[in-house]
Amino acid sequence: MATEAATGQTVSRPGIVSLGSVVRVAETIVGAVLLILILQWVLEFEIADPRLWSIYWRPFTDGIVGSLGYIALILPVSVLMGFFLGWARISRFRVLAWPVATYVDFFRGVPPLVIVIFASLIGPSLMPERFQSRTLGLTLAALALAFHSAAYQAEIFRAGFQSVHRGQLEAAQALGLKPLQAMRHVVLPQAFRLSLPPLGNELAVLIKDTSLLSAIGAIDIFGLSQDVQQQLIFTPGSDLRWLFIIWTAVALVYFVMTYAMTTILAYLERRVRVRGLETMSI
């Protein structure tokens, strides 16, 4: 860029794939493979056992697709809700702030499993006739999980907003920016930058919490694997060590999903990094 040449400074904007991130991913894959090899050796099983996979392949892939489907619904809903609830909590309009505080306290105080069961039992009876269907309870339970996570995310975004110094907003106003412009161009980018690390944490928890939906019969990787486990126990000729394979595979699926998510967030974090404001290393 001409400006860089003119000032003699380099502006480092990491590309989508930097060498560092490739190395990190490689390290993780090597680590996971090693762990599986050790598990296989200690517990004496063979992860690629063809007899098990002839039974388990279908439920395994169906389960992954099902889990991804729930995540695709829950994740965006929860982030959007969490963001606007967090904003409402710091709003100039106090009438918005206290219902959100109640909302947050409520969802933080109830275990997600209870919320899932509650939503699937009570939810459908609260909905009008034309929405009724076989999967309504499940959909409502998935949304309830999103609402639950949104409560935590609201607190994350609120903390992000509040850590932006109020002088920043005043400087934006003093330039003549309208409130929404000041939000969009000054407050939000800074709040977002500060919210990303805890947000990544919460989203990893959320991805794993989708396994709770199996308690009410969701078609997901956790539920289908559990079904196969039940089935194997009563199948003559089945090998008990197959259970090790199944749950190693399930653990791997959740690991890959959360790892992909945290990698995306780590990329976003690098994108919004500000020179001079990096965390220090001790």
């Binding site: 002088g167 106003q173 003549g176 500000v274």
Partner: peptide, 17 residues
């Protein structure tokens, strides 16, 4: 009004990002 009068603060308040 704020476009007509510029303001400089004690604590600078440059946009950090």
């Amino acid at each position: 009004v704020r476009q007509q009068v510029g303001m400089v603060f004690q604590s600078f308040n440059l946009f950090t990002h």
